[in-house]
Design a protein around this nucleic acid. Structure first.
Lengths: 206, 206, 206, 206
DNA sequence: GATGAATGAGCGTTCATTCAT
DNA sequence: GATGAATGAACGCTCATTCAT
């Protein structure tokens, strides 16, 4: 029935609206320093209504986190798909990640070293999903690198470790940039990372 | 006076005892999910006594964090001092860090991505100290690398970026290991990181 | 909207209910010896609810005090307005005050000499309001007496001091009565005060 | 034994020292806002030692209050003894009281309307003693006035009410002065009070 | 006797969640 | 369905008093 569909559509719209407001607030102040009342008033709902869209505060938080992380990983994959050649794809992994961080700094700041929030079932399963997604992403990177290994462009090293190394360079650059955002755009460091990753820091012996 | 000294010594002993118990508990459950009563009972004191050693929960937490971080950086610097040659020193940076993480896994887990706890003065100043210490450590690494750059062992690249890259590889390995501690010892990945960092991942052209 | 109005009305009803219960309890045991839990249970609310009507314990206390004092001063002024002639008005000042004290003995007991409660902003501003109201009341009395001074009924003495003297006689009678409430009604002493105030205690020389 | 005596003397000296410091602190901040630790440190003793001189905080407080009140009443009586004639003695009652208030303003401020502190046995018995002393003082005043009544200097009115009236005028002047201490010395209002009390406020009919 | 560290009951206040309207 | 007032458990922290040294 059309009625049903519209309802469902409105439901999703409202849910998204809440999540967007919640993201801003959580990003600014952290999970524990935010009250449901604040999220309710920021998103134009009553506290009671929040519980129609989410089972509780933890669920709201973890949903927001997971949704946004999914978006990040998807963005990276999309850009990689468009890029060509090994080097092009590696470049895309780096710059898509940086772009996301630049565009969602507040959100990403939630992932700076901080308090371990895991205590309940809900939070635990969120953590597990986050880890699974992270692993998935590493595997995605591995697969890109595998091609390079196979066709001899890259040295024959264990791809999982290679992927971790590449992601480590990306992650550390993002962390440092978030700590001191005054710096120039992160994107400018893409080439440097790429250079280090590909050619190492050591002087080539003649 | 001897009496005074012994008192002071006992005070420090007890303070340390509290910090050690607090570390375990905070590491396991995060700042907000831990109560002063728990820390008190775990360390064999009354809640009131905790306030003789620390001005409050935040102070107890941030003291614990800062003390332990200081220890980590000190450990790394000590090992590096003992090591010889550029490569030896870089190796020491990596393995001392890994060793610390392996020996203090629970503590280090507090630095996995998590909630932004900063809200009060106390927590803010803790954060600032942490960042300052981190920067200091990067500079320490820079200075090691600078030698290599000067004597031609390393390529002539901006040392701050090099230091960040090295630390990024170390950090990411530690994070991944903590997420899935079942893996074999981190120390075994030292050589790999060193290899990647020094020679890059790209096949040398003939 | 009617709905809104009823809500507001109910809010006020409940607030008043809390204030009434709080008055009884505070009057019986003093500010510091009363807990929010007691007030909550006496007024049939949960502790949390109290904070919907008042910002905290101090606010609840000072609101109660100020409201009731306002009532007292208003009562006196109303009675004076109805009375005729200088002497009638002075009589009204005395008897309206006594009546209020008799009807609100517990509340008035809060003003017996006791602990200085002023420490916080809230309590300080309450004290200031109380003093301001008291001064206002003295001025009100002054204005009554001024008429008598002008038309030659009263001796030509400084009205502020006269007002203070009259109020002093009233206050002291009330204090003494509250200390030993077994005595017969205060109202019976009205005439005596009036007599003393108007004619003094000295035998007229012939 | 002499040894015993000296001990006793020292004990009293120390007790008095504590009481003096306690008075300052209580006067400034009120019973509940003062801690035993503060009194201990202000008087140069340990918290434990305080309990050798007083059975607890309440006992310390009530002792201080009673001692000082005794002093006040004694002062007044001493001055009255020296004065001559009814009017002289009444004058002495007024001015000795004012003098005490001026010299011990902080202490007297403890008796401004404020929180009812009575809750425990100790405080209750303090209150009772205070009331008894107050009554005693009123009787003392009565006895002075009785002489005047008998010899025809004063009108033939109930002396208890007369005493209360006189004390009311004194008290109210003191209260008002303490509320707004900027005013000129209270002593200057002595004559006014005397005038009102003796001759009343009403114009004498010819 | 003197000390002051240790105690722990008790407080005001917050906030996720519920449910009568 | 939507509301937001009501709930009440839980927390960090204080401080009078005790007692081992």
């Amino acid at each position: 029935m059309v009625r049903e569909e519209r309802k469902e559509r409105e439901f999703q719209t409202r849910r998204t609206e809440i999540l967007e407001q919640a993201e801003k607030i959580f990003a600014a102040r952290g999970y524990h320093n935010v009250t449901m009342a604040e999220i309710a008033s920021a998103s134009g709902f009553s506290t009671g209504s929040l519980y129609q869209y989410f089972t509780g505060k933890e669920n709201l938080y973890s949903t927001m986190i997971c949704d946004k992380l999914d978006l990040m990983y998807r963005r990276v994959r999309d850009q990689v798909k468009k890029a060509e050649g090994i080097e092009g794809k590696i470049e895309a992994i780096i710059s898509a990640h940086f772009l996301f961080v630049e565009e969602n700094t507040d959100f990403c700041r939630l992932f700076l070293p901080g308090e371990n929030t895991i205590i309940s079932e809900v939070m635990l399963s969120m953590r597990e999903k986050m880890i699974a997604d992270y692993r998935q992403h590493l595997i995605f990177i591995e697969n890109i690198l595998k091609v390079g290994t196979k066709n001899g462009y890259l040295r024959n090293l264990p791809v999982d470790a290679l992927a971790r190394a590449l992601f480590g360079l990306i992650r550390t650059t993002a962390i440092d940039w978030m700590i001191k955002p005054a710096t120039k755009k992160m994107t400018m460091q893409k080439d440097f990372i790429l250079e280090i990753f590909l050619r190492g820091v050591k002087q080539n012996e003649k």
